[in-house]
Design a protein around this nucleic acid. Structure first.
Length: 663
DNA sequence: TGCGCTACGTA
DNA sequence: CGTACGTAGCGCAG
């Protein structure tokens, strides 16, 4: 891609965005942004009327940045292109500007290539077809490494966050002559005066990125990076279109590109979820904890006595003291009262409740202990803000299947605690979950017309059962066995009938299973790469390289001959990933649309739970929000399930508290 | 301190 | 009736 003439403008001009308005970009036109907190930001856009990408470096204080972004969003409605949502959107998020459309180069990189790396040099190299550069700081754990994306997270910048930075920087940047000269030179790297971003071998220079720049230089770097972002965007778009060549839809945006949009939006949504959190009524949670585990301990001694008090009812049933927190000791203790079990899991002990009173006491103890250790007072203190919001980190796409994940227990909150998830005054929750999403998605992605017909029913297991001539329960088990791989033969006959009734769906799953066993990479319906090839690195170092390359499939070490058990596991992993992964993409496409449309109702998504959305809206808009959730699902299905004949269903309810949901 | 194991919560 | 993920406490190795 040719380097471009560039202009650097500043607040000293009457309208610093004049060049942007003059370009008259159509809506959703790519607009790259690289933010420099405390300084400003740089914009770049592909040629409209201008003869190449135009770069605009803008000096602005924190408040001004929000104002500019809001105005650009309102007047242009661009597709914001950024390297990574976290640094790029920091100021927009702080200003509560809801950006509608984006392209997250890091997220799309992971979509196209798999793995977890999303740092700029890796994204650049993959986009332009260079070998992956060595990761920086590869000994650090992944979660920490993610921080390296924050090139300008404030820590490298002495000037920080106040308007003082503005005053200092206004002079060098608005003086402008030096970069006007260099910028107008019009050949590669003209913007930078501290060396270029690209090395001789074409790689994005990690040292250049890491070098602590002066504030003025940082804007020029931002401008350069914004230009490079456009280049990556073009390469990624082309790669996604090539993926879709197998099923071209003339005149339509390919699903892979639509998936890039929604995966990018999911990252942005993740940032908003981190910012806003989930409403939690602390008094309700405290009361529940009090009931389950007693009053809050204030000293280590308190805590010790509370532990002993919780343990006592269980120990009373045993002849000798046992460390209840040590499963081996528990197993030994149970043997002293005549209960011999291979392990002490609740499912194992449940049937033995009648055998000895200790069993029931132990199970009750475990349940309470779970709350104490994981969702107790410490959890409240660490994750619930004074504003009554439960906050944790979110990932837009994680793991083998690319689901959203969340920390702080947001995705595994025990049902008992859901009474504490209460809408704020004047607001309600509207909850929507996709019914039987995985078998319906299987019908879409496999193109099985018989299975598609079954999805016309609200409960698709009913027609499947009728078709198989088996009870509904058998039909459901057979479906799950087919999708996720079965070990026991309890659904054997139903499964055999499934194979005859839905040969296309079963062939699709068998093909995925085979690819998993043979170590061939797969792609989901939306184009996400599922790495299944054995990873050479996995067997090498002491875990240092792990997580920075591809997440390896079960037991895929590359060196040793896989055991039969490992092969079965890989097959199941692949079988599951193509269904669960596609379902995750559908869910995010829906969520992305809901997010945009909720703005009109002053509503927010406050929780994403794989197939369930919880939105928080003013009470007066509850009915409209419910309608919105149905309507957006239909709009998403219109392209996602196009031509498959598959029907998607959502169950929507208006709630005061999450626990009021029907189940 | 880091890691594997057991256990359990959600979908 | 399997897959996915996050969290915690324990025991063990270093």
């Amino acid at each position: 891609m040719p380097s471009a003439p560039a202009r650097v403008l500043s607040e000293s001009e009457a309208d610093p965005c004049a060049a942007l308005w003059a370009a008259e970009l159509p809506a959703r036109h790519p607009l790259a942004i690289v933010a420099v907190p405390g300084v400003g930001f740089a914009l770049a856009w592909p040629a409209g009327l201008a003869p190449g990408p135009v770069v605009l470096g803008l000096v602005a204080g924190p408040g001004e940045v929000g104002r500019h972004l809001a105005e650009i969003e309102r007047r242009l409605g661009p597709r914001w292109v950024w390297w990574s949502s976290r640094p790029a959107t920091q100021l927009a998020l702080a200003a509560r500007v809801r950006l509608a459309a984006c392209w997250d180069l890091s997220a799309v990189h992971r979509l196209l290539h798999g793995g977890r790396r999303g740092d700029e040099p890796a994204v650049w190299a993959a986009a332009v077809g260079l070998p992956p550069p060595p990761p920086r700081g590869s000994t650090r754990p992944l979660r920490a490494v993610a921080g390296q994306l924050d090139l300008w997270d404030g820590t490298t910048m002495a000037s920080g966050d106040d308007t003082g930075a503005d005053a200092v920087l206004r002079a060098p940047v608005s003086a402008g002559a030096d970069h006007a000269d260099t910028a107008d030179a019009g050949v590669g790297g003209e913007i930078g005066i501290d060396g270029d971003a690209l090395r001789g071998d074409g790689q994005l220079d990690a040292d250049w990125l890491a070098r602590a720049p002066s504030a003025a230089q940082s804007l020029r770097r931002a401008a350069r990076l914004a230009q490079l972002a456009l280049t990556v965007h073009e390469h990624q778009t082309a790669a996604l279109r090539r993926l879709a060549d197998g099923r071209p839809q003339p005149g339509r945006t390919p699903l892979s590109v639509l998936t890039a949009w929604s995966e990018s939006a999911a990252e942005l949504l993740a940032r908003e979820l981190e910012r806003d959190g989930l409403p939690l009524a602390r008094p309700v949670a405290e009361a529940l904890l009090d009931e389950l585990i007693g009053p809050r301990p204030h000293t280590p001694a308190d805590e010790h006595t509370a532990r002993r008090r919780r343990d006592a009812p269980v120990l009373a049933h045993l002849p000798a003291p046992v460390d209840l927190r040590n499963p081996a000791a528990v197993r030994a203790g149970l043997r002293t009262v005549g209960i011999d079990v291979p392990d002490t899991r609740s499912g194992r002990l449940e049937p033995l409740r009648g055998a000895h009173p200790v069993v029931g006491a132990l199970l009750a103890w475990r349940r309470a202990e779970r709350i104490v250790t994981t969702y107790g007072h410490r959890w409240l203190d660490e994750h619930v803000g004074v504003d009554g919001r439960l906050r944790g980190a979110w990932h837009g796409s994680d793991g083998g299947a690319g689901r959203m994940t969340a920390q702080a227990g947001l995705h595994n909150l025990p049902a008992d605690l859901r009474i504490a998830i209460v809408a704020e005054p004047g607001r309600v929750f509207v909850r929507a979950d996709l019914g039987q999403i995985e078998p319906r998605v299987l019908a879409v992605v496999s193109g099985d017309t018989a299975l598609a017909r079954a999805t016309h029913a609200d409960d698709m297991y009913a027609p499947v059962a009728a078709h198989l001539g088996r009870p509904r329960a058998d039909a459901k088990i057979a479906m799950l066995a087919a999708m996720y791989g079965q070990t026991t033969g309890s659904a054997g006959e139903a499964l055999r009938r499934m194979r005859r009734a839905y040969p296309t769906a079963l062939a699709f799953l068998d093909a995925a299973d085979r690819a998993g066993r043979e170590g061939r990479d797969l792609r989901t319906f939306g184009g996400r790469r599922i790495p299944l090839a054995p990873t050479a690195a996995a067997g090498a170092g002491p875990g240092a390289a792990r997580g920075l390359t591809d997440p390896p499939p079960p037991d895929a070490q590359g060196d040793a001959e896989p055991t039969p058990q490992a092969l079965i596991a890989r097959g199941r992993f692949a079988r599951n990933a193509v269904v669960q992964g596609a379902a995750a993409e559908l869910f995010k496409a829906w969520a992305a649309t809901v997010r945009i449309e909720l703005a009109a109702l002053d509503g927010d998504i406050v929780l994403c739970l794989h197939d369930e959305l919880l939105v928080h809206v003013p009470r007066r808009h509850a009915e409209q929000a419910a309608g919105l959730l149905h309507r957006t699902l239909a709009a998403t299905a219109a392209y996602w399930t196009a031509g498959s004949g598959v029907r998607l269903v959502a169950d929507v309810s208006i709630l005061h508290r999450w626990s009021d949901a029907p189940h």
